[in-house]
Design a binder for these strands. Structure first.
Lengths: 134, 134
DNA sequence: CTACTAATGAGAACGGATCGCAAAAAGGAG
DNA sequence: CTCCTTTTTGCGATCCGTTCTCATTAGTAG
């Protein structure tokens, strides 16, 4: 399902997608809800969740599954990976390729039909690093 | 904290660790609870959760955080990665190295202090593949 | 316009995980 | 062994992110 083939383009859906695309913080559903509420004060959290699901199924958003205990979302569906701060939960993008992955060899080892992989780095973000150093 | 330095070695803790080590399915907390209950019928789910936390903090078990919507646990703490079936949630081990990751380059790009990474493959397991083919 | 269907808002419900607390167990000292 | 201290357990309550229900509203085709 693509943007054009989505059944209805409601104001809520539009604002949610725009907001997600204009933010670089990989927000959780409720963080996004707080931002969207500034434009649509009467929107409900359930609508945000539903639209994030829809957008994900349409390939227009990514769910960063269980980065911590809450799902985070990414409006940038281009190929890139993430680094997460173990201390504050912040998630940043990594666009350069710092790994070569050989999926074909995984097929041979496991017998799975391999459809993809995710590479996620973890560490301490610049901010948390500085706080601890002082 | 290591096995020896753990404050108390209770029967519950012992059985939980043994069970986790003897199983190759990367069980969820409640799956492990069901297995452990066969030996200790009066154990509570809370105790399983608490001990999994303790074992993780001692470096004797791993919490597979991003695998589906429920945490799974692995008693094998040696370096390896996982492949998850998108259809049934099954998780298998991958011991061969099928990727070269350059963490130092990530440090330069992000400014993070990188402490690790996780590489997870996803696809369709042999069983689900066969079911769908028939 | 009308008719039909999808989407929304509000709140209830669900489920995994955690917490509080009294009772039990583990371990040390004597 | 007993006594004492500290940790752990079992149980139930609670938390909180997410999903569901359902009456109402909005989008779209004709």
């Amino acid at each position: 399902m693509t943007e054009a083939s989505m059944q209805r383009i409601t104001r809520q859906r539009q604002v949610i997608l725009e907001t997600l695309r204009n933010v670089r913080t990989h927000p959780t559903a409720d963080e996004l809800y707080e931002i969207v509420r500034k434009k649509l004060p009467h929107i409900s959290l359930g609508t945000v969740y539903r639209n994030l699901d829809t957008l994900e199924r349409c390939g227009m958003a990514l769910r960063l599954d269980r980065v911590g205990n809450q799902a985070r979302f990414d409006g940038d569906t281009s190929q890139h990976c993430h680094i997460r701060c173990k201390q504050c939960g912040r998630v940043d993008d990594i666009f350069e390729t710092h790994a070569e992955v050989h999926a074909d060899a995984v097929v041979r080892e496991t017998g799975y039909q391999v459809t993809g992989f995710s590479l996620e780095f973890e560490g301490k973000c610049p901010t948390c690093k500085e706080i601890q150093d002082n």
